[in-house]
Simulated assay, not measured.
Amino acid sequence: MTIAEGTLTDLLTDVRRVASERLAPIAHAGTDGRVNRDLLRALSTEGVLGMLFPGHGTDGAQTTAETICLLREALAYGCVEAEVALAMQGIGGYPVLQSGQRHHLDRWLGPLREGTAVAAFALTEPDAGSGAAALRLEAVADGDGWRLHGTKMWTTNAPDADFYTTFARTTQGAGARGVTAFLVPADSPGLKATSVELFAPHPIGRLDFDSVRVTRADVLGEVDRGFRVAMKTFDLFRPSVGAAAVGMAQAALDAAVRHTSQRQAFGQALGRQQAVAHALSDAATKLEASRLLVRAAAAAHDSGDGRVTAKSAMAKLFATESAQQVIDTAFQFHGASGLRAGHLLEGLYREIRASRIFEGASEIQRDIIARDLYRDTPIGRRAGGTAKAAELSATGAN
């Protein structure tokens, strides 16, 4: 492990350094829209995956939301591709770690930690994005198991993953309570995975299931309780979406401060112009508020706070929306230079846009927050209160 043990500040600094000096060159050598296995192995070699999956051997030790937030913020600052790779490995792998059977842990946990196996998370469908109750991938009973029929869309790490954490409907008409989570190996007969080209070059794809066979040995958690599997992972990872946005925004702000301190216009540095200085001051304030919200949400998860879903929604909403504004401001003050292909701001501008959609769009986060506000009122109880908010929170492009 090359990242030094120490304070949380030390961790943030060390991971930033590793990301920019060691991971970025490997990331840049990869292919847009496809899994970079060299990058995943490097994340393991540098000790980052070991912090995400902290156990030894095949024990089920889990990390904290605080650690995930620090890792994603630091990686996003130094190498966004590495942050995306870590997040997708975590989202796909944690359902196995948290809810897998012993043979799942024996088979997959070591390779996940070593970066030699690629995990994926398949929840969203073409017609089911912002509500788990609408999932239609059908699991038809077949002897001691099921046959999966249907399509998943916006699946992380497709088509290059080694297995897909897949959510299918095992009981019709039961809403979120009729969904089961399965571990589906990528080489399963009848499974076809194809790549989807995105605005930001993330490895995302489509899965088509044509009578894919699964059994009880493939179930993660309990039959018809797969929604719980998804929620455990989302509650852990959602604050860190905001953390990644903070990391990207900090990189943009730092670049803007450097640029405006040197760029001369009208006889003085841009940074001496009040309009520029005040805009960057506002950006810095939003960024610091975002960081505090993210860390508060992570602390809420790690302490078992019952309002973690709402607090995570607040952190994701504010941090991602603010980061978009911070990066846009930094872009504006770079002028035409920021428009060059390959410029830091050009890349961050494309990357940040997805964060306002993935793991629940900003509008869904507002719904979750509103339901929490009204949960003890008559309208909140009629709407289903926190249960409905939780159902909404396990959504988005995954």
Rank of each mutant, 00 (worst) to 15 (best):
Q264K: 04
L236Y: 08
L86M: 14
T377A: 09
E114M: 01
D210Q: 11
L23N: 09
V84E: 11
V80P: 15
A19Q: 07
G178M: 02
G380Y: 07
F53D: 03
A256S: 09
D254C: 01
D187Y: 04
D218P: 00
L344G: 02
K232H: 00
D10G: 00
F167Y: 10
F331D: 06
T116P: 02
D127E: 14
P111E: 07
L86I: 05
Q325P: 00
A230D: 13
L52V: 13
D162R: 05
E83K: 06
L373M: 10
H202P: 03
P189K: 11
W108N: 03
L49M: 03
A354M: 12
A27L: 12
Q172S: 14
S393C: 02
D142W: 08
E363C: 01
D305A: 05
T180C: 08
R350G: 07
I3S: 01
F182D: 15
S355H: 14
A200F: 14
R382E: 15
A315F: 09
L345D: 05
G57H: 03
E359M: 11
R113I: 08
T386G: 02
A139G: 13
G129N: 10
T260H: 00
D328M: 06
P111V: 03
L49N: 06
S290Y: 08
G385W: 06
I26C: 04
F318H: 05
G33Q: 05
Q250A: 06
A174C: 12
A389N: 04
D208Q: 12
N36E: 11
L191A: 02
P201A: 09
R371T: 00
A181I: 13
K232R: 10
L293R: 11
P54G: 00
L345M: 15
F333D: 13
A87P: 03
L71S: 04
A181Y: 02
A354Y: 09
G90W: 09
V219E: 10
M314P: 10
V184L: 08
R381T: 06
M248F: 10
L220N: 07
I369D: 02
F358H: 15
T386P: 13
P95L: 06
A176F: 04
A256G: 03
A19G: 12
G50H: 14
G78R: 05
Q264F: 01
R353C: 06
L97S: 06
I26L: 11
R382T: 14
A134S: 10
A265I: 09
E73Y: 01
L71C: 01
R213Y: 13
L40W: 10
L183C: 09
A383L: 12
M51L: 14
Q274P: 00
Q172A: 15
R102M: 07
Q101V: 04
L270Q: 11
G226V: 04
E114F: 08
D372L: 00
H278R: 10
G342I: 12
D38E: 13
T31D: 13
S322P: 05
L292P: 11
L39A: 01
R371V: 02
